[in-house]
Amino acid sequence: MFDRLDPLLHSELRLAVMSVLIGSDEADFVYLRQQTGATAGNLSVQLDKLAAAGYITVEKGFQGKKPRTTCRVTDTGRAAFAAYVESLRSYIGK
């Protein structure tokens, strides 16, 4: 029996964003864009979806005079990511 893959994570961009955030304490919007190669608009939409699901937090602030959007993965997001990887293993292993 295969585990169902989390549809929110089973998307290239959202999965890449979660992978970056899992491996960092936090990451800002510019860095996420560099790492994923996504457009600003697309990335923004996907971050909103992840935040709405409670997988990440998005904090808007300033660094000096420059606006800065910082994202962090939540415990819920960490658990969902771990479950997703476990599901992938069940697909590949069987």
Partner: peptide
């Protein structure tokens, strides 16, 4: 990077996770 997940196989997902984690690290 596309958000379309139609072609995202489990193998490709794991590969994407590994590549992104390594690049980030």
């Amino acid at each position: 990077m596309e958000t379309n997940n139609n072609d995202l196989t489990p193998q490709r997902s794991l590969q994407l996770i590994n590549e992104t984690l390594e690049s980030n690290r």
